[in-house]
């Protein structure tokens, strides 16, 4: 049966895919970043429709920040960030199209032909979901959660170390002193 939830999931799903396609169809890199932001926001709206409020809000907040940073980097790095020159920056298009299509068809086949078992219609309210997640994070999955935290810290240090401008160290000799 088509419920209101199914209609909204379909609508936001189509929006997410459409904006995902726009990312690679526009010549403007800034527009690409904004299209990706809209795609990820539509995904967050899907989560909200699925009554996963915490994950939906987290997705929208994280992606808004990430894509804003991405747009700034686009302007910094690109010769033509506005896409006025209509430069084609693609290669092996045919192979990529085939690979993308095969991946899509394969995943859809798995989604449609596998019996996933009984579907649960009802879900606990948001406060209970968040409480259960908090207990999970600080209980059974604490090691995974802590590992993710340490990995983030390592990546932050690594990214800064890679990006920082190397400063030549000059050691003064006795005569120069």
């Amino acid at each position: 049966m088509i419920t209101g939830q199914a209609i909204f999931i379909g609508f936001f799903g189509m929006a997410a895919v459409w904006f995902g396609i726009v990312v690679f169809r526009t010549f403007s890199m800034v527009r690409s970043a904004i299209a990706l932001l809209f795609s990820q926001t539509a995904l967050g709206a899907m989560f909200l429709t699925m009554q996963a409020e915490f994950l939906g809000v987290l997705q929208i907040m994280m992606m808004a920040t990430e894509m804003s940073i991405m747009a700034i980097f686009m302007v910094m790095f690109m010769m033509d960030p506005g896409g006025m020159g209509k430069m084609d920056m693609t290669h092996q298009k045919r192979l990529s199209l085939i690979a993308g299509f095969v991946a899509f068809v394969g995943a859809v086949a798995v989604a449609v032909f596998i019996d996933w078992g009984p579907v649960t219609e009802t879900i606990a309210d948001t406060a209970q979901q968040t409480e259960a997640l908090g207990l999970e994070l600080l209980g059974r999955s604490m090691l995974i959660f802590e590992t993710a935290g340490v990995t983030i810290l390592t990546a932050m240090i690594a990214a800064t170390a890679v990006a920082i401008k190397p400063v030549p160290i000059k050691i003064k000799t006795k005569d120069e002193k």
Binding site: I9, G10, G20, V23, T90, A99, G100, F101, F104, A107
Partner: peptide
């Protein structure tokens, strides 16, 4: 229907992403 539509949307995003990463 909600589960299937979500999985198909996920598959479409995955396919578009593969195209983008390769092209």
């Amino acid at each position: 229907v909600e589960l299937i539509w979500s999985l198909i949307t996920g598959a479409a995003l995955f396919g578009v992403g593969i195209y983008g990463a390769l092209s």
